[in-house]
Amino acid sequence: MTRTLVIACGALATEILAINTLNGWDHYELQCLPAKLHLHPDRIPDAVEKLVLENRDRFETIFVAYADCGTGGVLAARCKALGVEMINGPHCYAFFEGNQAFEARGEVTSFFLTDFLARQFDGFVWKPMGLDKNPELLELYFGNYEKLVYLAQTEDVALTAKAKEAAQRLGLTFERRYTGYGDLVSALDPKNASAPRPVPG
């Protein structure tokens, strides 16, 4: 039985499982919180804490596969208080591109999609923003953006077409950038000191 738990955002589930398959990793068990928590980032720290406390007795180590994700540092503080590690960086799109590279670009007027968000554009962007019912809000939400950047984790023609269509719907120019899994791989790599490591058990 594995004694390491990774608590991840549901938006990363497919990617984490793919990384495990690619690397032949089975050194941790994965539990995901609903990706929809991103619509209310203030709820993420409590949800993570609840899962950590529920599993603390069952696992030797717990790793949190979330970046800051709009919590304004609160998630990092909570993880520190709980004594668990988490992923560095502001958002998943930053660590997919690589946190340093993402910061260096300093793209202020770009709106980012990952594979997950391209796949779930309607459920995670269009509808929660009320654009299905009130398209007149588009300018209020996206008027200051210029470009939609699709940070692709995989080579997927159909997904690229979906991302391009999303850009058109938002009235933004489109750019596709292949990132692969970026810093998420090293964050989960057992060779990394702060990553979830196998615990003999």
């Binding site: 929660p128 923003m129 009320g130 654009l131 009130n134 809000l137 209020l140």
Partner: peptide, 11 residues
């Protein structure tokens, strides 16, 4: 209420 409704009210 959520952000879309607030924006419509603000409009």
């Amino acid at each position: 209420l959520f952000v879309p409704e607030v924006l419509l009210a603000a409009g």
